[in-house]
């Protein structure tokens, strides 16, 4: 009996689950795992196919959107990459993206750890309010704030076309603060009360006890914080008119909106740029996915 998962064109596959007929235990288990495998493989295929297509088409010299074009034999070229580079200064944009993202990661790591630690292990006035605010921030859409922020940062502070202006609204990632807080909460209380009884000051406790332990959470937080600014399109788009300052996400979007039909394979050029944008993020995650454990998120879903 074959169970084929119905393919919705271009959409995620639905795993073809149906109530299993009563069968001897072993048979049922085997069928179950085969089904599962099929579903997972189909799912992975659907998820990865666009990326495969992206890569392949970016290396083609002719735009071929037919089914056969998905599995090209020849026509390989690197022209698309040089094409997009001539339109959009790839290196410069990458550097801008890097500075933007780096600034945010720095701000988050330095101030976020402090805030997360304070929220988790210290008791001070206004603590509850700060925690509530941290949660609330994640609820409100950036777009509501974007106009006042635009007014503030561009007009009042005059920070248009500047790295600081880009970084400011994202300087400390609230999700990361939440992760740090959850992490510090999980550390055993005795560690801290023992140190306090021994007379250690709070700064000392932070420096010698909390910080050395924070590394796993740090990695997760950095990975999460990385995604935001690296892929952020709207805010830098709003405040930069100078194309030299634009991060890659914005430059690419501009190019996309004004698709230049000049290149022989215009889509190829766009996709080449897209590959360049996507590559660092993917590489980073593939390299560190082992550390990106579910345990940090687990505390968030426990209640």
């Amino acid at each position: 009996m074959t169970q084929a998962a119905p393919r919705v064109a271009g959409g995620p596959a639905r795993s073809g689950h149906s109530p299993a007929e009563p069968a001897p235990g072993a048979g049922r288990a085997a069928l179950g795992s085969v089904l599962r495998m099929v579903a997972l493989v189909l799912g992975a295929f659907v998820f990865l196919f666009p990326f495969y297509y992206m890569l392949v088409q970016s290396l083609q010299d002719e735009s071929d959107t037919s089914v056969g074009g998905a599995l090209p034999i020849g026509g390989w070229t690197l022209d698309n990459y040089s094409d997009i580079n001539s339109r959009v200064d790839l290196a410069g944009s990458l550097v801008n993206s890097g500075i933007f993202t780096g600034g945010v990661i720095l701000g988050t790591v330095v101030f976020g750890v402090l805030a997360g630690y304070a929220l988790a292990r210290l008791h001070f006035r206004g603590q509850g309010m700060l925690f509530a605010a941290m949660l609330l921030v994640q609820l409100v859409p950036f777009q509501l704030l974007m106009i006042p922020l635009y007014v503030m940062i561009v007009r009042n502070y005059g920070l248009a076309d500047s790295y600081l202006g880009m970084i400011l609204p994202f300087a400390i990632n609230s999700t990361a603060v939440f992760i740090f807080r959850q992490f510090f909460l999980q550390l055993p209380e005795d560690l801290f009360s023992a140190a306090r009884i021994d007379g250690a000051g709070e700064l000392r406790i932070l420096w010698s006890i909390a910080l050395p332990l924070v590394r796993p959470a740090l990695l997760t937080a950095v990975l999460i914080t990385f995604i935001g600014p690296w892929n952020e399109f709207l805010w830098p788009f709003l405040i930069t008119k100078d194309t030299d300052m634009q991060p890659l996400a914005v430059s690419l979007a501009n190019y996309l909106s004004n698709v230049a039909g000049r290149a022989s394979n215009p889509y190829g050029a766009i996709l080449a740029g897209a590959c360049v944008l996507a590559a660092p993020a993917v590489a980073l995650f593939v390299a560190f996915q082992r550390h990106f454990t579910t345990s940090d998120l687990g505390s968030g879903v426990k209640g």
């Binding site: 990326f51 892929n231 979007a253 996309l256 996709l271 897209a274 944008l277 996507a278 993917v282």
Partner: peptide
């Protein structure tokens, strides 16, 4: 983890 901008192009 990929930028929307990047995948939109493919779609």
């Amino acid at each position: 983890i990929t930028a929307s901008v990047a995948v939109v192009a493919v779609w």
